[in-house]
């Protein structure tokens, strides 16, 4: 007879703090409940208060793994990117969030883990090792990531250059990258404001790109970043899809 395939939690035996900071963190029943509740609330909020419009929703792959990337100018961006996911997958989508902001204080870290299900990326330490761990999780679990390859929120509304780290996650794998364009969030919730204003926001989801033939090294990573950036920029003309 075949043995059962028992896989203990990847964060088994960690203390609460280690688990919060860990890239291997797995949600329990309570966290799954809070995630679903939070995303249902955020979707309603974005629909009602910001009149969120979505184009190209059919471009989101039906099954993980995949990586959603977009331009970044506001805290509303991540909320939009997750709340358009299929509701079944919402607990399998992890926004990659800046550790020095979202995981700095215990209260913020609790919000990041219980509500947005974020995994921490530290801006001064997101090299090969960390991204390699994320890449392994992306493919083996499988799950989906939401990330903003500019690395920070844009100040002037222009799309900054995409960082090569994105390439480390997907180069030479069949994981699709879904380029998205977000507009309106800079007016709705600018960097220096705390309270969102009732402005319209919209999200355009482009056709997925895959990088199966791109080599998994420095030049390949940059190729991935450049190609994805061009795909996001191409969405500005309103065509709704570009490859």
């Amino acid at each position: 007879m075949q043995d059962f395939d028992l896989k203990p939690a990847n964060d088994l035996g960690m203390t609460h703090r280690q688990r919060t900071m860990s890239l291997a963190r797995e949600s329990g029943l309570i966290e799954t409940g809070t995630h679903f509740a939070y995303w249902a609330m955020m979707r309603t909020y974005l629909r009602v208060y910001h009149r969120m419009s979505i184009r190209g929703r059919e471009n989101i792959p039906a099954q993980p793994p995949y990586v959603m990337v977009a331009n970044h100018s506001s805290h509303l961006d991540a909320l939009m990117m997750v709340s358009v996911q299929r509701w079944r997958l919402r607990d399998k989508v992890f926004p990659l969030a800046a550790g020095d902001f979202f995981f700095e204080t215990p209260a913020m870290a609790a919000f990041a883990t219980l509500c947005i299900n974020a995994l921490p990326l530290w801006r001064n330490n997101c090299g090969r090792h960390v991204l390699g761990e994320l890449r392994k999780r992306l493919i083996s679990e499988p799950c989906a990531f939401v990330l903003f390859p500019e690395g920070t929120r844009s100040t002037d509304g222009k799309i900054g250059s995409f960082k090569a780290g994105l390439g480390m996650l997907v180069a030479k794998s069949s994981v699709p990258v879904v380029p998205c364009l977000i507009s309106g969030t800079r007016e709705a919730l600018p960097r220096d404001k705390r309270c969102p204003r009732p402005r319209r926001v919209s999200l355009t989801i482009g056709q997925p790109l895959t990088f199966t033939d791109v080599s998994n090294d420095r030049s390949g990573w940059e190729q991935v970043a450049n190609k994805t950036q061009r795909a996001v920029e191409a969405l500005t003309d309103g065509s709704g899809g570009a490859a």
Binding site: L6, K7, P8, A9, L12, G28, L29, T32
Partner: peptide, 21 residues
Amino acid sequence: YREYARMTGLFREKLLSLLVV
């Protein structure tokens, strides 16, 4: 049960875990 589910991997089956709870 929480420890058992995390140990055996059953916690990944959210519906079954909810039923046990």
